[in-house]
Amino acid sequence: MRRSKMIRMFLFHLITLLFGYIMLYPLLWMFFSSFKDNSEIFLNAHELLPKRWLFKNYVDGWKGFAGYPFSVFFKNSFIVTVIGTIGAVISSAIVAYGFARCKFKGKGFWFGCMILTMLLPYQVVMIPQYIMFQKLGWVNSFKPLLVPAFLGQPFFIFLMIQFIRGIPNELDEAAKIDGCSKYSIFTRIILPLISPALITSAIFSFLWRWDDFLGPLLYLSKPELYTVSLGLRMFSDPTAVSNWGAAFAMATLSLVPSFIIFIFFQRYLVEGIVTTGLKG
């Protein structure tokens, strides 16, 4: 029995490592290709390790284009991602508290409308939004990417509603007896208790906004406003020879913030998803 259990455990770990390697192979290939020149990337694509390590790909990639170093693109991405994440989390928490704890006319109708917006693909609202932002004069600025974040995100609202509903109403009643208003209850009781949902929403928002390509592509046409995703696209030049080694080098660096966020906040992410909807 003991031997059979050890064999099953060995096979389980072996298969897990095999599938993990298959899933990570594209990232490993990109990382090692960032140290190769163009000829080695395409002629020896089947070989993972480079024959000659070219660290200058990172130097060339960081120089950027047309006088704009890649640090500019990283700075723009951090501005859009951090401010947008803060706005999305705060606004979603406020809206979720209203749906979960406050009574108002048409609550069920508006909640249904909010859920329906989760079913709409972005392509449906893309053109109307662009026309609206163009008439407001917001094109070629960060406003189209930041202002909507401060109006709440349906997925985060729904996630936080489940957490708030799991908090006993007796805590609200006790706070009211002590003289707390709805705003005090929200800031002093609700927010600390839904911290797993807040952190989970912040992680998702950061990853989605950092990886976003379509939004910046629609609204930004000035190189000084480009985010990392648009900066990576500039490496592909159909009229000249593209420096794919530098492109892979900058693509590797672009994964570092997401990797750090996931490593340090992984347990909060798992806790936030697992405990969603559990009643207190």
Rank of each mutant, 00 (worst) to 15 (best):
G231Q: 02
K107P: 03
G84Y: 02
L119P: 07
L120P: 00
L119W: 10
M23I: 15
A251F: 07
S221T: 13
P26C: 12
Y97P: 00
G245S: 09
K176R: 15
G20H: 00
I94L: 14
V228W: 05
F78K: 00
F42A: 04
E170N: 15
Y58A: 05
T117I: 01
V228H: 03
V59D: 07
S141M: 06
F70E: 03
N243Y: 10
M30R: 05
F163M: 10
A66D: 14
K36L: 09
L198V: 12
L207M: 15
F70C: 05
M160H: 02
P216F: 04
T187F: 14
Q129F: 05
F248W: 04
Y68Q: 11
P192M: 00
I90G: 03
S71W: 08
Y68T: 11
L171Q: 07
Q162S: 08
L48K: 01
M6Q: 13
P196E: 12
K143A: 08
Q129Y: 01
G280F: 15
I41K: 06
D60R: 15
P148A: 06
A246M: 05
I161P: 03
K176C: 03
F31G: 10
W29Q: 14
G61S: 11
D212L: 06
L54F: 11
Y21D: 06
F104P: 05
L11M: 14
I90Q: 05
L146D: 08
F265Y: 13
S195A: 09
V241Q: 04
R165S: 09
R233N: 06
K51A: 06
D37V: 09
W62I: 08
S77V: 06
V80A: 01
E40Y: 06
G84K: 01
D172L: 11
F32K: 00
F262W: 08
V82N: 08
D178M: 14
G137E: 04
I203V: 15
F35W: 06
G179T: 06
M30P: 02
I189F: 09
K63P: 03
K107L: 14
R52T: 11
D172Q: 08
F109G: 02
I115C: 14
Q134T: 07
G108F: 11
F111Y: 13
P257R: 04
L269W: 02
G166D: 12
S184W: 11
L48A: 11
P168M: 15
R209A: 01
P148E: 10
W208M: 01
D172K: 10
S229A: 14
K63M: 15
V256E: 03
F12I: 02
A251K: 00
R8Q: 05
L28G: 06
F19Y: 10
F55V: 07
L255E: 00
N57Q: 10
F74Y: 12
I177C: 13
P238D: 15
Y21I: 14
I189P: 10
S229V: 11
F42S: 12
F150T: 05
G166T: 05
F42R: 10
S229H: 02
E173M: 14
I15P: 10
P192Q: 03
H13D: 03
L54W: 08
W138E: 02
M9C: 04
A202W: 05
W53N: 07
F32S: 09
T276I: 08
G272T: 12
Y268R: 14
E47R: 15
W29H: 13
A240T: 04
V59R: 11
